[in-house]
C-alpha cells in the first residue's frame, strides 16, 4: 500500500512511488541517492538524519515519506550554489569542525536555520540550539566555533553589500 508523492528536493521537482510505511530518510538515501542525511539512532535522539522540511529542521528517520507530498525538502546537497560551497559549509571546513563527518550534514542544516533566526548568536545560544545533534567524535568546540565564524562571515558579506 502506498502512493506516488511529488515534492521538491533541493530545488528540483521529484515524483516517486513510496510505501505507506517508508521513512523519508530511506527514500532519500536508497531511492533518490541523496546520501548526506544519515541513520544514527533511529529514535530521535541524535539528529544525524536532519533535513529541512519547508525550511524547518526535522528528523527524516521519524517522518513518513507519504507526508512530504507537496512539500519542500532540503539536504546538505542542496546548499552549494553553482558548485560553490555555502558559507556554513566553508566555515566547518576552515575551523576543522569535521572529524568522522557522520553528524556534520545534520549540524550544517541546523546551523543554517540557527543563523537565519539569529545572525549574531553567542556561544550559549549556539549550544542550546544544537543540542538535538550529537557528535560521536565529541568535536563540539570546533563545531560551535565554525557556526560563530559563519555568522561573522555572513555579517561581513552583508556589510560589504550595503557599502556597494
Amino acid at each position: 500500500m502506498g502512493k506516488i508523492i511529488r515534492f521538491r528536493l533541493n530545488g528540483r521537482p521529484v515524483s516517486i512511488y513510496v510505501e505507506n510505511n517508508e521513512l523519508l530518510l530511506n527514500v532519500l538515501r536508497e531511492k533518490l541517492g541523496v546520501m548526506s542525511p544519515k541513520y544514527g539512532c533511529g529514535i530521535g535522539e541524535c539528529g544525524a538524519c536532519t533535513v529541512l522540511l519547508d525550511g524547518e529542521p526535522v528528523l527524516s528517520c521519524l517522518t513518513l515519506a507519504v507526508e512530504v507530498d507537496g512539500k519542500d525538502v532540503v539536504t546538505a546537497e542542496g546548499l552549494a550554489k553553482d558548485s560553490e560551497l555555502d558559507v556554513v559549509q566553508r566555515a566547518f571546513i576552515e575551523e576543522g569542525a569535521i572529524q568522522c563527518g557522520y553528524c556534520i550534514p545534520g549540524f550544517i542544516l541546523v546551523a543554517k536555520k540557527l543563523l537565519e533566526e539569529n545572525p549574531e548568536p553567542d556561544e550559549d545560544f549556539i549550544r542550546e540550539y544544537i543540542r538535538g545533534n550529537l557528535c560521536r567524535c565529541t568535536g563540539y568546540v570546533n563545531i560551535v566555533r565554525a557556526i560563530k565564524r559563519a555568522a561573522e562571515e555572513l555579517k561581513f558579506h552583508v556589510g560589504k553589500n550595503k557599502q556597494v
Partner: peptide, 12 residues
C-alpha cells in the same frame, strides 16, 4: 530492534 525501518504495514 531494527529502528532503521518501520516494520509495520498500515493504511494511511
Amino acid at each position: 530492534v531494527n529502528t532503521r525501518i518501520l516494520p509495520v504495514e498500515f493504511e494511511y
